[in-house]
Structures are given as C-alpha cells and as structure tokens.
Design a binder for these strands. Structure first.
Length: 379
DNA sequence: TAGTCGTGGGC
DNA sequence: TGCCCAAGACT
C-alpha cells in the first residue's frame, strides 16, 4: 500500500517544527497595535466587574456578539449582582435566557451564582481551579474571564482562536483532532505582559478579519507571517470533516383545552434537551402510526388522560444542532382523567393571556403565536 | 472520545 | 432553500 500523503504523525511533527519557528514577539506587537486601532467596541469591554464579564462570557459561548448584546443588557438590569442572580428562582432565570438556546448555560449560571455566594462570600473567585469548579465554565471561559477581569496570563481556545491559529500555522488536520496541541500554540503565543488585551485582540481578529469565509487578509496584521496566506490556502483552512445530513423526527403535539378555555402545558425534565422549559405535550410519531393515534397515545402515556382531537393548528419545521423536527400540532379537547406529570417535572392549566410568564423553546413560540392569531380571528 | 445541547446570521 | 457557523461545556 502506497500513501498519497505522508502519515499523520509525520505531518504533525513537521507542523510543530514549523509553528515553533514563528516570531512570537513580532506577532504580539503587530496584533496589539492592530487591536489598538481596529478593536471592537463592546458593552463588556473595559468592564472590570468579574460578574459582568462572566455573564458575557457564558452568553457568548457558541453565540454571536450581535445576538448576545440585548440579552446581556437586559440581564444586568434584572440581575445586577451575583446575589440577585443566586436569589432568583430558576424559572425567572430561564425566562431571561429564553431564546438564547443551550439552556444548560442559564441553569448553570444560576447554580454557579449560588455556589459563589455559599463558597466565596459572593465574590467571584480569582483562582483558576476555583473558577473551573463552577458549573458551565471550562478552560476557555475561565481563561477569558480571568484574563479580562484580572489580567491573568491565561490562554484561550475558542472558535476564533482555533481558526486563526489553524491558518497562521497551516494546520494539516481539523482542529478538533489536535485540541491539546492547539492549546500549546495558544499558550506560546499569548503575550504574558498583556494577556487581557492579547486575548481580546485575537478574538477580534477572528471575528472581523480572519472570518470563516472570505477572510480579509489584506487587512490582517499577521498577513506576512501567515502560512495559509503564503500558500493561498486561507479559504481551505481550517480543515473540517464532512457531516452527515441531519435526521428528521416527526412529532405529534397537542394543544389541550379544558371547558374553562385553559391550555395544558408541561415543564420538561431538568436534564437534557430544553431542560426546565415549558412545552405543549406530545411525542414522536412511530413508523406506521397516524398523527392522531400518536397524539392520543403520547398524551395517555405522559399525562394519563383521554382527549379528543379536533383540528390541525399548524405545522412547524425546526432545526436543532443534531436533528430536525417536524411538529404536527393539533387542537384537542380534554376528556377524562386527572393529568399527572409522568414524564415531566410539572404540569399546569394556563390561560393564553398568562402564557408569556413561562419560558418556552423557539419552536413552541410559533404555536403560541398561532393560538393568538386564531383567538384574534375568532373575535 | 464522540455525542449532546439552541438559535439566528449569512450566504 | 439548506447549510455552515458562532467567545464551548459536559458526559
């Protein structure tokens, strides 16, 4: 067997030799100079309160700056201190997080605030180990917070840094395969004298110049040093492994109304997808099963009640990270039996007017809107 | 280690 | 339209 390309280990060894020859001091100088003139102005930039920096770092996980800004500002008005967050109830916290996604971030933020109050007298910890012990904070977020709040010399490795480093060093494999080695690069590159500005600068570079698609290399302070640019491979890096098409789950959903005109909603289990949020009950349509049969079965299994299915309300297609759903939503009428939360934390009958008090996932908001539209049309 | 975990922007 | 991707953490 002959190989078209060198073995992976040989290739990575050559890569390591190559990136270690980069001129670190020069890279630091040029980046910091660029940052001084071209850095972004952001609400949390220049902030020294570790609580506020922490909130911004959590919100920014896998979420774009533009999306975060309004949430960040509302959050600090509602929960201005660690104490105020710790004392809030989880539903209030999730309502404030509603729409941001990855809801474990909101739940962990709440838990961590309580931990900080109990274990650190309400003061955000400054020791790396203690910060890493807080739920929802990994190595990148810890480095981001401690470098931004206290100028501690800790490297980061977020999506921006991975992309920038993959291009700067012409990484011959997808970043995911060599995370440990990329941490070493990030640590070697970090400016130990100005870790705060350096980390902010490299993220700004990734977010505004070294873009995922069509990077503007002509504006890049690292153009002269960049191995990807030298090889005209900036549009091919970082490498990525092709992903399989997302599976589609078909779901039957019931909007169950009682004689008082109230609607039955349930609160999802604490762990897992959309944990702690409210929803309209329903479940997966089994092969060969009709939507109506599915809904009747799911409602019996989840709530132990009998219902009548009235009419189709709306169909919703929604994409999550690892699958897609097709929601077939039907208006239903409560029949008999006392509803029990057999597969949820809690259930409740609510008026349409009260439903805004509860945090719902995005796909369910479309159902609520359809109910509002229908109520308005019948008026 | 590879899956799980949301939503919106941008093309 | 459908797909990639975003200041990742957790199991």
């Amino acid at each position: 067997m002959s190989r078209a390309t060198p073995p992976l280990k040989t290739e990575l060894a050559a890569w390591q030799v190559q990136w270690q020859q980069l001129d670190w001091p020069q890279l630091r100088r040029s980046l910091l100079n660029w940052y001084q003139h071209q850095g972004r102005s952001l609400p949390w930039r220049g902030e020294t309160d570790p609580y506020k920096i922490w909130i911004s770092e959590i919100m920014l996980q896998q979420t774009q700056v533009k999306t975060v800004i309004p949430y960040y500002q509302r959050w600090l008005e509602q929960f201005p201190t660690v104490q105020s967050l710790a004392q809030a109830d989880q539903q209030t916290v999730l309502k404030a997080w509603e729409g941001l996604g990855y809801y474990a971030r909101g739940r962990n933020l709440h838990k961590a605030a309580q931990q900080i109050c109990q274990q650190h007298q309400g003061e955000f910890p400054r020791q790396l180990e203690q910060v890493l012990a807080l739920p929802g904070i990994g190595r990148t977020t810890a480095g981001g917070i401690l470098s931004a709040a206290f100028n501690q010399p800790l490297a980061i490795l977020d999506g921006n840094v991975k992309r920038v480093l993959a291009r700067l060093t012409a990484l011959p494999v997808p970043p995911k395969q060599v995370i440990k080695m990329l941490w070493a690069v990030s640590e070697a590159l970090l400016d130990p004298q100005q870790p705060h500005d350096f980390n902010q600068a490299i993220m700004d570079l990734g977010a505004t110049v070294c873009l995922p698609k069509q990077p503007t290399c002509l504006l890049c302070p690292w153009q002269q040093a960049c191995y990807a640019y030298a090889d005209h491979r900036q549009n091919q890096l970082p490498m990525r492994t092709p992903s399989a098409p997302l599976p589609v789950k078909k779901i039957g959903v019931a909007v169950i109304r009682n004689a008082a005109g109230q609607i039955l909603i349930d609160r999802r289990l604490e762990e897992g997808l959309l944990g702690g949020l409210w929803e309209f009950p329903g479940g997966k349509i089994e092969p060969g099963e009709t939507v109506e049969a599915c809904i009747e079965r799911e409602i019996r299994e989840e709530l132990d009640i009998a219902i009548a299915i009235d009419e189709h309300l709306i169909t919703i297609d929604h994409a999550y990270t690892h699958f897609k759903v097709n929601l077939q939503v039907y208006l239903c009428t409560y029949g008999s039996g006392e509803p029990k939360p057999l597969e949820s934390q809690e259930i409740r009958w609510v008026d349409l007017d009260q439903i805004d008090e509860f945090p719902f996932p995005k796909a369910n908001q479309q159902i609520i809107q359809a109910l509002r539209d229908r109520a308005a049309a019948n008026r």
